[in-house]
């Protein structure tokens, strides 16, 4: 077990200092108040500014608390913003994979479809935007569960619904599956929600790696999976590539 991280302690002290009064503080004042070197203080302030916890006045250069701190409890990325930022990558994924693409975000214990790109074969298809999917039976939902964007507890208490004979309804089996999703970095659903249908999904990350949504491709099980019902590796890498590209655009530097 590692000890406390010094820079986080210092960051917390800076936030408390800025929160202690209405006055905006300059770099020198912050450094002097906490007995820190100016360079160290500046580095921490810049980092806090990057995550919108601190804002700097353009005219005076002084610092104050950022608006993001007020909304810590709510999702920080608007779902319509998420769609707008993902739209080109989602189109590219549909064009290259030849499958329908959906983006999901958590909403009240389910997956809200925030974006849907048709399978590019010009057959009659209906927009699913606004529809809700179960967390445990969809690849988008499993990604959100595995990466902690949403908790299963409320739904699990009522009992997990079996949509098909493949749906994971036993909590221990689902837990195992979610561990595997975390290890692999992607999730699959093979006839777990609808017989004959399969899907692959990967996490979309925002600042600091926080998972804000999931993107996935789905279609008939014959196209998504090989003869042994294993998802096609080429499709998996296309989905992950799209997820990583959106994450990079959203500021998740490491992905």
């Amino acid at each position: 077990m590692a000890g406390p991280v010094q820079s986080i302690e210092r960051a917390a002290a800076i936030l408390r200092l800025l929160a202690s009064g209405p006055r905006r503080l300059g770099l020198g004042e912050v450094a002097a108040s906490l007995g820190l070197a100016k360079g160290t203080t500046h580095g921490i302030l810049r980092t806090l500014q990057n995550v919108d916890f601190v804002e700097q006045d353009a005219a005076t250069g002084k610092y104050h608390l950022g608006a993001a701190l007020l909304h810590l409890g709510t999702s920080y990325l608007d779902v319509n913003e998420l769609r707008s930022r993902s739209i080109n990558w989602a189109d590219a994924l549909a064009a290259r994979s030849g499958e329908a693409v959906r983006l999901g975000a958590p909403l009240e214990g389910r997956v809200l479809i925030v974006h849907h790109v048709f399978r590019p074969d010009d057959t009659l298809q209906t927009l699913d935007v606004g529809a809700l999917l179960p967390l445990h039976a969809s690849s988008l939902g499993k990604v959100l569960l595995a990466f902690g964007s949403v908790s299963l507890e409320p739904a699990a208490e009522a009992g997990l619904e079996a949509y098909t004979r493949h749906t994971l309804v036993a909590p221990e089996r689902l837990t195992e599956a979610l561990t595997e999703v975390r290890e692999l970095g992607w999730a699959a659903e093979v006839q777990e929600m609808t017989m004959g249908e399969a899907g692959i999904a990967a996490p979309i990350r925002g600042h600091g790696g926080l998972v804000v949504g999931a993107i996935g491709a789905s279609g008939t099980v014959e196209r998504i999976c090989d003869a042994k019902a294993v998802p096609q590796p080429a499709l998996v890498s296309q989905v992950r590539h799209a997820a990583q590209a959106i994450s990079r655009d959203l500021g998740a530097a490491r992905w």
Binding site: A95, H116, V117, F118, P120, L127
Partner: peptide
């Protein structure tokens, strides 16, 4: 024309 594909319809 055959390159054109519908991504969404309202």
């Amino acid at each position: 024309r055959r390159n054109w594909h519908r991504a969404a319809q309202w």
